[in-house]
Nucleic acid binder design. Structure first.
Lengths: 363, 363
DNA sequence: TTGAAAGCGCTAACAC
DNA sequence: GTGTTAGCGCTTTCAA
């Protein structure tokens, strides 16, 4: 259903306006015009004014960014590599918050964000060679992905986030293991014993050895739960684990349904994300299981939705926006002074009203 | 909580490896090396092999993208301008699907996506002048925003999407008015008379005249509802309209609560997005109002969540990914042949199980 | 204050 | 097949 009004225009453009055009017209040199934009103190205000006026008239927006970048050896953009389709990448809203942080930090250094989604099918890493960027942020890219190597080969600074952790490369993230342990410990302290786990994104179809060396955040969180529960004398094999393909409220609800249908209904459920946890709470409502009196639920991330949930969700807070800010900051620092380093941000359990002491258990 | 292991390195880099380096070392000319990368048929396979080998050894990843772009007069990236914070932009998942489409189309033309968020505070449009892009996609930017003018000034192709509609500039979108009219008509056909509306993003604090000329999609959808309902003899002033600040399930649930508490509970609710509609259905469950027998609910967009809802949601489908693909396609066409045009995509009502004939009304 | 000269790294003609 | 030439549009010494 295409509009009929397709038109052609500007096929043969007017001769392009450049610095030189302005300079010639005004009878000054190109560097003077350049200075008007880059070093205002290097010429008289009057001349500067004249230059801008003519530029305006001629429709000249200022120095061509590509040429400027070539000269300055600086791209003015940060490449952000995503493992999955963007659709999936933003499903959690956590990614969006992270990107928001990158944008905030980028703004301060006049850097844009070049998004490079790494579809699973796409072996071709040409997009990475072609990217006009000062460096890359690797966000939830599984180590071993061809893009990682391609980014490294560019010889620009690289910052890894979360899951992606590479020797000798800067990293930003939280201690997922300790963070999830806090969540599990909270339940143990409330005397819960029949605890279930709802998790997403284990990528169980990926090569096992790959994840053995560098586990995904989901696996780390599972480990954190496990460590605490086993210390409390709860056998890990007794802990039901439901895996969701999508990280959504609906998926969480479906997972909870499975848990509720089974025998020995859990008194508490650990979720590796907030959407999953909200889904679990919704399912509990469907089953008329009161939260938290009969069922405790814990999420992860502390997205805005967590505090607004009914009841407000106990969850692990991690500073998502700050994570983005730090990643961008680290990248910029690396381009400028070659600084390299790791930043581990603090994650803390936020206790709200979705958790309560274990009710008297009816065997 | 910064790691102690900050290190310095590469402060004074080795002399950079360029095409010339390879050429000199191999005793061939630079163009031959260039051809190895860009015109493989222009040199012997053996020589090409030798070039790549040396490049590998020297850690040369191929022609510098900035220099290449300068020479070719092509940036290899599409700028995507967002009105709001990214956080908000991705809240609906509809934006993410749109971006996905842009990415898919961009991939085919070796174009990346440069994201440029337009925070409300940010008067400074420098980011747009500095952007290394072949054109801009204006996504949900209110006309009148300083970024619009800045993008236009760059003299690169611009494509508007949805809300943003500018004279003489390409546009991609759907007929929001007709689409929402379909939804309302469906309810009228089912004999519903007590109909309510849940809407987001009216931006009521924006200057009224601004929106009078170019209404946001939300306003258009409202208009579509209104037209149909009034034709059916339902006074628009009798239609309760609840506005949500956020486009989320929780916000939709809260809105529904307000509608249920009031007198004369509606028998049907029109929502301008799927998350809002799911929230409404959830609230109905909380109030033990069976959907669809006692309450019909309609969403907008047909996100994946709509089909998976319980009951599956009747909603207006618009091809979000395709919208992104078309926008990118249009932009690329514009850069290449100066084509300009409008693409209006088809939106259709998808009837599922959240709507049913109006129950016998208890006055 | 302003200008002249020298590239940044690359590609596209064209000639050999 | 390969090399030579001539810039793309800009910034930056350095000299005037």
């Amino acid at each position: 259903m295409r509009d009929a009004g397709l038109t052609m225009e500007k096929a043969s453009g007017a001769p392009p306006v450049t610095l030189a055009t302005i300079a010639a017209r005004l009878g000054v040199s190109r560097s003077t015009v350049s200075n008007a934009y880059n070093h205002p103190d290097q010429l008289s205000p009057a001349l500067r004014e004249k230059i801008f006026d003519l530029a305006q008239t001629l429709g000249y927006t200022g120095p061509d960014p590509v040429a400027r970048r070539l000269r300055q050896r600086k791209a003015g953009a940060i490449g952000v590599l995503f493992a999955e389709s963007l659709q999936k990448a933003f499903a959690d809203a956590a990614s969006a918050l992270f990107l928001e942080g990158v944008a905030i930090a980028g703004e301060k250094t006049d850097s844009g964000m070049l998004l490079i989604p790494a579809r699973p099918t796409e072996e071709n890493a040409q997009a990475i060679n072609d990217a006009i960027v000062d460096g890359f942020i690797l966000y939830s890219i599984p180590p071993g992905h061809p893009f990682v190597e391609a980014a490294l080969r560019r010889h620009v600074p690289v910052v890894c986030v979360d899951q992606t952790k590479i020797g000798g490369v800067s990293w930003v993230g939280i201690d997922d293991l300790a963070a999830s342990a806090q969540a599990a410990q909270h339940l143990v302290d409330l005397n819960h014993r029949r605890i279930a786990v709802v998790v997403f994104g284990l990528n169980t179809n990926a090569p096992a050895d790959e994840y053995a060396s560098t586990p995904s955040v989901s696996r780390l969180r599972l480990q954190g739960y496990r460590r605490v529960l086993e210390t409390a004398g709860i056998s890990w094999s007794d802990v039901p684990i439901v895996e969701c393909v999508e990280n959504t409220e609906s998926a969480g609800a479906a997972a909870a349904h499975r848990l509720f249908e089974g025998s020995g209904r859990p008194t508490a459920i650990l979720c590796t994300s907030d959407p999953l946890a909200l889904g679990v709470m919704r399912a509990a409502r469907d089953y008329s299981i009161p939260v938290p009196s009969q069922l405790s639920v814990i999420g992860f991330n502390d997205l805005p939705m967590a505090a607004n949930a009914e009841p407000p969700l106990t969850t692990v807070r991690q500073p998502l926006v700050e994570k983005g800010i730090e990643a961008a900051r680290l990248l910029v620092a690396a381009t400028q002074v070659g600084e390299k380093g790791n930043v581990q941000l603090e994650a803390t359990l936020v206790v709200r009203e979705s958790t309560a002491p274990c009710p008297a258990v009816v065997a």
